[in-house]
């Protein structure tokens, strides 16, 4: 088993194969619980543990895939432009909603974390969990948290938002393109945005904008709030 997994390319290939299969499962079942990112992560961890491969070794191959994350975020500028007329009409409200959502995200994670007596390094790693990975890692690192742990919590949050978000928003009757998209992007960053695009291009564009603006808002607000509560 070890020999097969000796090269980084093999880990990259394994990730592609597992994700392709998970995507197939998702399309067949149409079940939110079968979210391809969630299924892939569970299956990959199971395989790596069974093969006794540690994360650092897997990451050499994973880095190959992660290298496309930043360009993919840049590419979200395309739908943002396509839906610009819809966005322009609500510009002021979008800014308000983002600041509000960012505050809710930081406070609702950091305050209970402090109350539960969690380690300050964990508190600051949880606070930016709703923003996209590179921003959350930066914020956590800046405030004495653990960037890689922050990244894991970001993915957990993203998957959670993608899995329960549409149903929760539907329950609250939040069905407008703008409110639905912003909620998904602000709460669940890129993974939520990918899910919002399944709903429609406008939802996806609003979600991209939410992801972008919340990254900005959260990186400014987190240090201020942490200073008050820690």
């Amino acid at each position: 088993m070890r020999g097969v997994f000796s090269s980084p390319t093999a880990f990259a290939a394994l990730t592609f194969v597992v994700y392709a299969a998970a995507l197939g499962l998702y399309r067949r079942t149409r079940s939110s619980l079968a979210h391809p990112v969630l299924v892939s992560i569970v299956v990959l961890i199971a395989i790596l543990r069974a093969a006794d491969v540690d994360y650092a070794e897997y990451r050499r191959g994973g880095d190959f895939i992660m290298a496309l994350l930043a360009p993919a975020v840049v590419a979200l500028g395309v739908p943002l432009y396509r839906e610009f007329t819809k966005i322009r009409g609500e510009a002021g409200a979008i800014v308000l909603t983002t600041v509000f959502g960012s505050l809710v995200g930081i406070v609702s994670a950091a305050v209970p974390a402090v109350l539960f007596g969690l380690d300050p390094a964990i508190v600051v790693s949880l606070a930016p969990k709703s923003v996209t990975t590179p921003i959350a890692m930066e914020i956590a690192g800046m405030l004495g948290g653990v960037p890689s742990f922050a990244a894991v919590m970001v993915i957990l949050t993203g998957v959670l938002g993608a899995v329960v978000g549409p149903a929760a928003l539907h329950l609250l009757r939040v069905t407008e393109e703008s409110a639905f998209g912003l909620a998904m992007g602000i709460a669940a960053h890129g993974v939520g945005t990918a899910r919002a695009f399944e709903q429609g291009d406008a939802e996806g564009a609003f979600s991209s904008l939410g992801l972008c603006l919340n990254g900005l808002a959260t990186s400014i607000l987190t240090p201020l709030i942490i200073k008050v509560i820690l």
Partner: peptide, 17 residues
Amino acid sequence: LAGNLAFFFVPVGVGFM
């Protein structure tokens, strides 16, 4: 790229282990 955005997060998530 935008269409496969979620996929690019998978290796980070495996860090859960």
